[in-house]
Simulated assay, not measured.
Amino acid sequence: MTLRARILIAVAAAALLGGAAVLYVARSAPAVSTPESTGTVRPGPRLQVLTNGVLSTVSLADPRGPRAVTDRRCDRAYAANGMLACLLPVDALTATRLVVLGPDLRERHSVALTGFPNRLRVSASGRMVSWTVFIDGHSYATTGFSTRTGILDTRTGAQVESLEEFTATIDGRPHRAVDTNFWGVTFAADDTRFYATMSTGGKRYLVEGDLAAKTVRTLAENVECPSLSPDGTRIAYKAAVDGDPQRGWRLSVLDLPTLRVTPLAEPTSVDDQPAWLDDTTVAYALQRDDGTNNVWSVAADGTGEPRLLVEGANSPAVVPS
């Protein structure tokens, strides 16, 4: 079977399954229609989201208020410091593509990709962009899937086509295996260090990477889709329940200096790479029964309860102004 055929099958399967993760506690959100017209968003910090796959923004102070909707379609999106990254949707005729846009939404960079769009991040400076696509499979809850994760330096144009090119160590020992996969990059403030998930041998690790040295090293197990806090001290992530992704994931926070884990107050399985709203709050998407998404937030210290932020949306990212 050709790679294009596998991608089309994955697209069809994803559409049928709706990307639903296994839930170990069910919670439904109100079914509402999502806005399709441009509203007047309050000035100040904004939250960028995708509304039915269309790039949109809402006021961070009033995220359930008016929504400014563009005509830019993305399967995944993320923004930081004026740079916006978008993974274009796959269809029967075209493969996905990474496009990097400026504040005016004009295209600055473009990278042709093969696979099904999955994860996307921009470093805090706006310089580095990372993406993950599924090459085979379409769910992290299964076995036998294959991913490809790359990184683009928007300043120099240098590109890492796959993190599998890097030298990996597990607990200090060199490691190389054909079953190794990477996904969910998050960048440190220096634009050289990064964190990601590496799976191999039936285990899923948090790794710290060095772009200059082209190395990754393991830090902890059962850490998927990491997101580094603004102060650089904690990782928000999804942790497989009892180490088994088929049982779903618990949203958690890892303290990097101590490796202490704090499960968050979201009881529903979260199959998403979370985003930090600030140093105390984490945002993420949950899928509704009708197949669309809502953006929620929860305190990063394990207290409180989830709060519905934006209805009918996913891919949250804070835009300061």
Rank of each mutant, 00 (worst) to 15 (best):
M1A: 13
L3G: 13
R4T: 15
R4Y: 08
I7G: 06
L8C: 06
V11G: 04
G19K: 03
A20M: 10
A20V: 12
L23K: 15
P30K: 03
V32M: 09
T40L: 13
P43C: 08
G44P: 07
P45K: 09
P45W: 02
Q48R: 08
T51L: 11
T57E: 11
V58F: 00
A61G: 08
R67T: 14
A68F: 12
L87W: 04
L88T: 13
P89N: 06
T96E: 05
L98E: 01
G102L: 09
G102Q: 06
P103Y: 06
P103R: 09
P103S: 11
D104E: 11
D104H: 09
R108N: 09
G115D: 06
F116W: 11
F116M: 14
L120P: 00
R121L: 06
S123R: 02
W131G: 01
I135D: 12
H138Y: 14
S139C: 07
F145E: 11
T149Q: 07
I151Y: 02
V160L: 11
L163H: 00
L163W: 01
T167N: 15
D171G: 13
R173G: 07
R173M: 08
P174W: 02
V178P: 10
D179N: 10
D179M: 03
D179W: 02
W183D: 15
F187I: 00
D191P: 06
D191M: 03
T200N: 10
E208S: 12
T218K: 01
S227F: 00
P230K: 06
D231S: 09
T233V: 12
T233A: 14
K238D: 14
D244R: 15
P245E: 06
Q246P: 11
G248H: 03
L251D: 03
S252E: 08
L254I: 02
P257T: 08
L259K: 10
T262N: 06
L264M: 05
T281A: 03
V282S: 03
W296D: 04
A300M: 05
R307A: 13
V319N: 05
